[in-house]
């Protein structure tokens, strides 16, 4: 499958994300002739262990995530970042987890927005909001390069595209920038040939970035 980079909006120190930034970012895509194609949505769920003795919580993972991706509607992905595990399963694994009653959903976030076509690139810009709420928690962007599946072979064209994109966004003097930090996929046993498991890992890392930037923002205010 075509490879993609998942970027997240990094607000400048002391500023927070807001819907005006999201609007301007969307306008940026259109200003470089991105053609709006439709909506997309991914959902990320944090799970927490159901424990008989909370004092033993440290023995269980605190970073257990589940992700559903629009590119694989019949699949579901579990990620344990600490253990460097990404698991691909059928969607029915969610029902199994429910029946096991050992972990339950703590919070779920939607990544949703519009998809754009731009030559050989497909862009998705979306907001990060808790399910059942409209509180904007972040902005993400997927840059997908359709002709290539190799991470290494596409690196140069992706770098060049993202440079142009960063220039376009910076002209608007928004209080922040897009950040791309590529996870070390080989830690997860993933190869150079791109799969949806790579996407799931990227979302888990973007989520960690979002949490870190929210915490940094809170610390700065305090």
């Amino acid at each position: 499958m075509p490879l993609k980079w998942v970027l997240n909006w990094q607000p400048n120190a002391g500023s927070t994300v807001n819907s005006q930034i999201l609007n301007e970012v969307s306008q940026c895509v259109e200003s470089i002739n991105g053609v709006k194609e439709g909506r997309w949505k991914a959902t990320l769920t944090f799970y927490k262990p159901m424990l008989r003795d909370q004092a033993l919580a440290a023995d269980f993972p605190r970073d257990f995530l589940g992700i559903s991706l629009p590119e694989q509607p019949n699949k579901y992905y579990f990620i344990l970042r600490g253990h460097k595990i990404v698991l691909e399963a059928d969607s029915s694994i969610q029902l199994i987890m429910e029946k096991l009653q050992s972990y339950k959903s703590r919070v779920a976030l939607n990544f949703e927005g519009f998809q754009y076509q731009l030559g050989d690139f497909q862009l998705r810009v979306g907001k990060v909001v808790p399910t059942h709420s409209e509180n904007l928690r972040g902005i993400v962007m997927e840059v997908e390069y359709l002709p290539i599946s190799s991470l290494e072979k596409s690196r140069q064209v992706m770098d060049e595209f993202v440079d142009i994109w960063q220039d376009t966004v910076s002209k608007r003097s928004l209080p922040g920038h897009f950040l791309h930090i590529e996870p070390n996929f080989s830690d997860y046993g993933l190869a150079d040939h791109y799969t949806s498991q790579h996407t799931a890992v990227q979302y888990a890392h973007v989520m960690a970035q979002l949490i870190a930037s929210v915490q940094a923002g809170q610390a700065a205010r305090n």
Binding site: V86, L87, E88, D90, S92, I93, I96, K99
Partner: peptide, 8 residues
């Protein structure tokens, strides 16, 4: 309930 899964 059954679900296919990756080898890990």
């Amino acid at each position: 309930v059954e679900s296919k899964a990756s080898k890990n």
